[in-house]
């Protein structure tokens, strides 16, 4: 058989017979859902915890702030100090032993991502000139108003590249979802391999799909960055 005939046969066996392409489509769907919701959760956790860190560093040290600061420190240390897949398994097998696996995965990946987003935002916020905060406060704005209306919008511009990086990392990290029985894109390809004993074609397709998504995200990143540079033109 010629090379192309072999490929054709593989494609047919891997994706057409018994509607096996559905493993890929469903897997892709799960991967996208986990990534997007985990990203949203991670952004929320990351922004909140970074603001706690920054307020603490700026001298806000009431009793509540001290407690929050300790929680945030532990959170970031533990998450950055342990492998994502172990965190996912702990979430699935130890903490939330019942419930939708998809939701559990979103929680695990979101909490994980939040720790990295937090560090990104902390340095992003601290790279905004402190004179901006002073100008806001001198006008009578509260610390929170100054943070959300003046400092954060500028920080977001600074951190956009790093956040897209985190988005891309997160997308790829969800490929360990199979460890807790979730059929994501990677697992979908793997199931086909276990049926047809052809590893090459499904893995190549799976890799190609990740790659296409990442290239797409990178394009979006460029558009967003250009938009955010609007106020920098001279």
């Amino acid at each position: 058989m010629s090379f192309f005939a072999t490929i054709g046969q593989h494609l047919y066996d891997d994706f057409v017979v018994e509607g096996r392409y559905m493993y890929i489509l469903q897997g892709l769907g799960n991967t996208v859902v986990i990534t997007i919701f985990a990203l949203i959760l991670g952004l929320a956790l990351g922004v909140i915890s970074s603001i706690i860190n920054v307020f603490y560093a700026n001298g806000k040290r009431g009793p509540l702030m001290r407690v929050l600061k300790v929680i945030v420190s532990i959170y970031i240390t533990v998450i950055r100090g342990t492998p994502t897949v172990v965190q996912l398994m702990i979430m699935y097998f130890v903490i939330l032993t019942s419930g939708s696996p998809l939701v559990i995965a979103i929680l695990a990946f979101g909490i994980n991502s939040g720790a990295y987003v937090s560090e990104v935002f902390r340095s992003g916020i601290q790279s905004v000139d402190y004179g901006q905060t002073e100008a806001g406060r001198s006008l009578g704005l509260s610390a929170n108003q100054t943070m959300f209306k003046i400092v954060l919008p500028q920080a977001i511009k600074n951190v956009t590249p790093a956040i897209f990086n985190e988005f891309i990392t997160l997308l790829k990290e969800t490929s360990v979802s199979g460890y807790v029985g979730i059929q994501d894109l990677t697992k979908g390809g793997d199931i086909i391999r276990s049926i047809t004993y052809d590893a090459f074609t499904p893995l190549l397709l799976v890799a190609g799909i990740y790659l296409v998504i990442v290239i797409g995200l990178t394009q979006i990143q460029h558009v967003v960055e250009r938009r955010l540079q609007k106020s920098d033109r001279h």
């Binding site: 000139d129 004179g131 901006q132 002073e134 100008a135 806001g136 406060r137 001198s138 006008l139 009578g140 704005l141 509260s142 003046i150 919008p153 500028q154 511009k157 106020s231 920098d232």
Partner: peptide, 21 residues
Amino acid sequence: IDEIRAQMGMVFQHFNLFPHL
């Protein structure tokens, strides 16, 4: 203090305009 500061304008050496606005 926010209430007080709202009644006291301040102008800085380095302007401190908000660059994103």
